[in-house]
Each structure stands twice: as C-alpha cells, then as structure tokens.
C-alpha cells in the first residue's frame, strides 16, 4: 500500500514508555488529523516517524512506501519524501534561510528523490523561493535572515510551511502548525497545505484544537490518548471532541 503504516509501535524516552502499541494506516492522497490531550504522545509520534535519535523504538515498525524506515537516519527519511513541520522550530545562527533550503534541496537532489521536481540552478531556486515566500506573506529580506533567529512564533510556523512547499515532500507531519498563528495566517497556511493535495501527497496534522481543521478538511480523524489511538472516524469526530472534550475518550 502507498503511504505510511505504523504497526504496534512502542516508544520510550529515558525508560518511560510514551507510545504503547500504536497502530495507524495513513494513506497518501488523503489528509489525516490526530487530536489528543497534552502529553498523549502526539509530538513523540511525529519525531519518531522522522527519526529523532533521542527516542528509542522498543517494538513495532514504521513502513513508508513499502519500506521499513526505522533504521534510516533522518536525512534518508527526508530523501524518501517525509517531512516534519516542527512544533518548536530551532533557531540556527549564521546560516541564512535561503542557504539552508538550497543546501537541503541539493542534498535531496543528490539522493535522487525525483530530481526533476526541484529547480535546476540557484537562480531558478531563488525565483521559486521568492514567489512562495511572498504567498506566505514574507517580504524580500526574509530569505536573507538567519534560520528562525528572532522570528515570531507565527513567522516560524509559516517558515515551516515555506520549507515544505520548497522541499516538495510526499508525506508531511505537521505538529501544531497553527499554534502562534493569527486568523489570517491560519488561512494562508491552510491554503498552502490544500495546494499540495494530490494523489501522491499525504499529510498528518497533529493538533490539540480543531481550529486549523476548519480550514483544512481532514479525510480521516484519529483521537490519541496515552500513547494509543482510541478512536477513528471522519470530520464528525472533530465535532465530538470539541463538544465533549478528551475525557470521554480516556474512559474508552
């Protein structure tokens, strides 16, 4: 099957188990949403899928494009087409945003991930970056700024989406992408995600609140509590969460 399959995933950090036998079938061509209370393991899930070295996978498998990716380092997962939009993007001094994205593209090209979808040279790259930065409401100077240094919370989130647009991933995990965004920015970000929709693109939105889901309509919704998926359904499930909170699901 195309997409991201997670089977019986057990993950711990510093000997504390966070994911406790999680199963998910995330098809490409669809937008998925995971909702859950704080500390339910949502962020951990995103990090584990992308290959954060801090998390230890005790059991289970993660399969992407028919391949078990658990042994791959993060950069090779990116080369397969995965992308993680961080809840708290890192600030890195002395490297411009533009330089960072260009280096990322060069690295992806080198690993031959659909090389022809990326700009051929730096001039074309810059043109594309300017255009997409503009769509996301960044001015000309933005791409010359150091990676996330001094960005507001909203700028950081929009910058994550800009990277996503430039790196053209096939499956993205966006962790609390709407936190820190004002209403107008939520709409811009939602439009950008919607613009990626295709048969060959899948997304997993990780969120605490339903706000972003009013703008990006998920095809499937999952509720996660204490390291497990406790319920799945359609958009109706979002309304249920909004109405009754997560307490109801904790008893399941």
């Amino acid at each position: 099957m195309k997409g991201l399959i997670i089977r019986n995933l057990h993950v711990s950090i510093e000997n504390k188990e966070i994911l406790k036998g999680l199963n998910l079938n995330l098809e490409t061509g669809k937008i998925h949403a995971i909702m859950g209370p704080n500390a339910s393991g949502k962020t951990t899930l995103g990090c584990v899928i992308m290959g954060h070295p801090k998390y230890k996978v005790k059991k289970g498998e993660i399969i992407f494009k028919g391949k078990n990716i658990l042994e791959l380092p993060a950069d090779q997962r990116a080369a397969l087409g995965l992308y993680l939009g961080f809840q708290y993007p890192l600030e890195i001094k002395g490297i411009t945003f533009q330089h960072f994205i260009w280096r990322s593209i060069l690295a992806l090209k080198e690993k031959k991930r659909n090389g022809d979808i990326f700009p051929k040279n730096f001039i074309e790259f810059k043109k594309e970056l300017r255009k997409k930065a503009d769509i996301l409401g960044f001015d000309e100077k933005f791409i010359e700024r150091e990676i996330n240094v001094g960005f507001s919370g909203g700028e950081k989130k929009r910058a994550e989406i800009l990277q996503m647009l430039m790196l053209k991933p096939e499956f993205v995990i966006l962790d609390e992408i709407d936190s820190g965004l004002d209403v107008d920015s939520v709409k811009i970000v939602a439009q950008a995600i919607e613009s990626m929709r295709s048969e060959n693109f899948g997304a997993l939105l990780i969120t605490h609140y339903q706000r972003i889901l009013n703008y990006v309509k998920p095809d499937k919704v999952y509720v996660m509590v204490d390291g497990r998926i406790v319920k799945q359904g359609t958009f109706e499930l979002v309304k249920e969460v909004e109405k009754f909170g997560y307490k109801v699901f904790e008893k399941v």
Binding site: P73, D75, Y83, L84, I92, G94, I95
Partner: peptide
C-alpha cells in the same frame, strides 16, 4: 535533528552549525 530532517546529512549539518558560528 532539525537540519537532517530536511535531507542534510548529519556530518554536513554539524559543519553548517560551525560555519554559522564563525559567520562573524
């Protein structure tokens, strides 16, 4: 992790951080 998640190999990621550090 942030840099490698974009496709940049780990060794290059370290180099980038160092280059950023000496950028002044």
């Amino acid at each position: 992790f942030y840099l490698t998640s974009r496709g940049i190999p780990e060794s290059e990621a370290y180099a980038l951080v160092v280059l950023g550090f000496i950028e002044p």
